[in-house]
């Protein structure tokens, strides 16, 4: 009788509670304050963008897996996270078809063609964002003013700062600034980020590496470090995009290198290149370096 048989298996006989699914859902939950901030500042249309983006990501994954005859694994929640992150990277004026297209590209080109979950070298949401920026540059930079705020003209804070202007830090912190849907409130992002740090779902080395190098470089360049941290996509990128497990290094030292690398590149692009913002590109560039970083930063084995 099967129910009387003892289970034989190789140790360990117990496993930790976290699963891929529980991690993905935690990340989604951690993004909710930022979604709420987006809706608060930009109105219900922001929510529509988020929902369409998630829906399209999930649909793209299901269709792909069906067509390729693979087992359906949308329930792991990673498509939801990708869709959500892509929406966070869109301007609040983005047309819904663009959100849908970006998400589908993120899932298919950013993840599935490499073999699906765990196999993609680049952060899928960033692949989607870069695709949209390259294809529809005008639509991707049409910033809206937060409802009820008219302090600054329609340039993003970074553009203002680059042009020599200043932006009140409290606006940057709470979110009353033009910018991407999910970038607007540093406070909301920090709440989610701290939640994930406590749960151990994002790595403190990457986050510290990015923030630390940005602060140090700002001081060296004579810029206001707080403004540099709070402005643009840095919070979102540092807390939610660079820390993507799949596309960051697995070695402890490697994660320091990766974080510091992202921070350096961000400051270089912001202040050297012709673009005010460079978080996405910095992360993608460092994603490309991950195999090399992993190979060169292997931990020293005990006793060797």
């Amino acid at each position: 009788m099967a129910e009387d048989l003892l289970i034989i298996a190789s140790s360990p006989h117990i496993r930790a509670k976290d699963t891929v699914q529980s991690i993905m859902y935690s990340v989604a939950i951690a993004l909710l304050p930022a979604v709420a901030a987006g809706v608060y500042f930009f109105g219900w249309y922001a929510l529509a963008i988020v929902l369409v983006s998630i829906g399209s990501a999930v649909a793209a994954e299901v269709v792909w897996q069906k067509l390729r005859g693979q087992a359906l694994r949308v329930s792991d929640g990673s498509a939801i996270v990708t869709g959500l992150l892509l929406a966070m990277n869109l301007p609040p004026t983005a047309p819904l078809w663009m959100a849908a297209l970006g998400s589908a590209v993120a899932i298919i080109i950013g993840k599935q063609v490499y073999g699906g979950l765990g196999a993609n070298p680049f952060n899928p949401a960033l692949v989607g964002r870069v695709f949209l920026t390259a294809s529809f540059p005008m639509l991707m930079t049409k910033w809206a003013l937060p409802a009820g705020y008219d302090a600054i003209a329609s340039a993003t804070p970074l553009a203002v700062m680059k042009a020599g202007g200043t932006v009140p830090l409290t606006n940057l912190f709470f979110g009353s600034i033009p910018g991407c849907l999910g970038e607007t409130s540093a406070l909301a992002l920090l709440i989610g980020g701290i939640y994930l740090l406590i749960k151990g779902h994002i790595d403190y080395r990457i986050v510290t590496g990015i923030f630390g190098s940005v602060v140090v470089l700002s001081l060296l360049m004579g810029l206001d470090p707080v403004a540099q941290l709070l402005a643009g996509g840095l919070m979102l990128g540092a807390l939610f995009m660079a820390t993507d497990m799949v596309t960051s290094p697995v070695t402890p030292k490697g994660r320091w290198v990766f974080g510091i690398g992202v921070g350096l590149l961000v400051m270089l692009i912001r202040n050297g290149a012709g673009m005010p913002e460079g978080v996405s590109f910095s992360i993608l560039l460092m994603n490309a370096a991950v195999p090399l970083i992993n190979r060169t930063t292997r931990p020293r084995i005990y006793g060797r």
């Binding site: 991690i23 497990m245 799949v246 960051s248 020293r300 084995i301 006793g303």
Partner: peptide, 16 residues
């Protein structure tokens, strides 16, 4: 599930 390269196994291995 596929490895999601979360690095937990690396972080927790007592032999590094």
């Amino acid at each position: 599930d596929p490895c999601i390269r979360c690095a937990r196994c690396v972080d927790h291995c007592p032999m590094h």
